[in-house]
């Protein structure tokens, strides 16, 4: 239902109209999830469903040869019909490997060309090698890929990646799998304020409040894997994350009150009887 544009919209938000658009495609969920680190495929399936996510990252790896051919595979539980798959270039430390991985992913998925680009620079922190990332992004965009790019929280690099034609820029909150939450909210805020493409926090989220904070900063969405898969109860955490992302987004759209140094009473002084 479209709101009547003649009326002020200040207090009326139809949250159902608040959709996420990436590369001209519309999504209802601002929570994106990875499919790794789960106990088994059943847990993967249940947690993914509980999260409400529509975009799911997958990794591209060698097929196990000699495996039982009836062994279920990831795409049996995360089907291309119900989800938008986002192949990643996890484990790539060079431009060449990342580009090669994306091309294989596109072939694997019958021409589906939305990819998550990550070019790592260091094994301990898994921080991105931003110069290699810029180079790989340039090649991939030219080759027709729709690139969602993992990067650090440097606003200059984020803007350069956008200018290269990436469809979304994804600054890390903290190292992949660290669960530390957003380390530098001011950088994320600067990136969001300067962006003309969706900014999604990717990596380092630990718990629901971290996700809410990302959304309150104005991020278009958030991508996480370990935060859900490594929780004691992943399916429950997936549900928590779904709500946190919605809550954070609504809080952002609602426009928070300003922070104040001192108190401001909520009850009137008039009518005091003592």
């Amino acid at each position: 239902m479209m709101a009547n544009l003649a009326e002020p919209l200040k207090n009326v938000i139809n949250i159902a109209d608040d959709t996420l658009i990436i590369a001209d495609k519309t999504y209802r969920s601002r929570l994106l999830v990875g499919s790794g680190k789960y106990k088994d495929l059943e847990e993967t399936r249940l947690a993914t469903e509980a999260s409400g996510a529509e975009i799911i990252t997958v990794a591209i790896r060698r097929t196990n040869i000699g495996q039982n051919p009836n062994e279920p595979s990831l795409l049996d539980v995360i089907s291309t019909e119900h989800y938008t798959l986002l192949p990643n270039t996890a484990g790539c430390y060079t431009v060449e490997d990342a580009v090669r991985t994306c091309r294989l992913a596109r072939e694997l998925l019958d021409g589906h060309d939305l990819v998550k680009l990550e070019v790592l620079g260091d094994e301990k922190t898994l921080f991105p090698d931003v110069t290699a990332t810029l180079e790989a992004a340039k090649i991939l965009v030219k080759d027709g890929f729709k690139v969602m790019v993992y990067t650090n929280d440097d606003p200059l690099i984020a803007k350069r990646l956008e200018e290269l034609g990436c469809v979304a820029v994804m600054p890390l909150a903290a190292p992949i799998g660290s669960g530390l939450g957003i380390r530098n909210p001011y950088n994320i805020l600067t990136i969001v304020e300067n962006a003309r493409v969706p900014i999604l926090v990717d990596a380092g989220v630990g718990t629901a409040s971290d996700a809410a904070i990302a959304m309150e900063l104005g991020c278009a969405g958030i991508l996480m894997n370990t935060a859900i898969a490594a929780a004691r109860n992943p399916v429950l955490m997936a549900s928590a994350m779904k709500k946190a992302v919605q809550a954070g987004r609504e809080a952002f759209l609602a426009g928070r009150m300003p922070r104040k140094r001192f108190a401001s009473a909520s009850s009137p002084i008039d009518g005091l009887f003592f």
Binding site: G34, S35, G36, K37, Y38, T44, T57, V58, A59, I60, R61, R62, T63, I65, S73, L74, L75, L85, P87, N88, A90, L104, A105, L108, L109, I176, G177, M224, N225, T226, A229
Partner: peptide, 10 residues
């Protein structure tokens, strides 16, 4: 020859 497929990953 490299034969690849999609598996779980973040």
């Amino acid at each position: 020859v490299e034969i690849v497929h999609a598996i779980g990953g973040g």
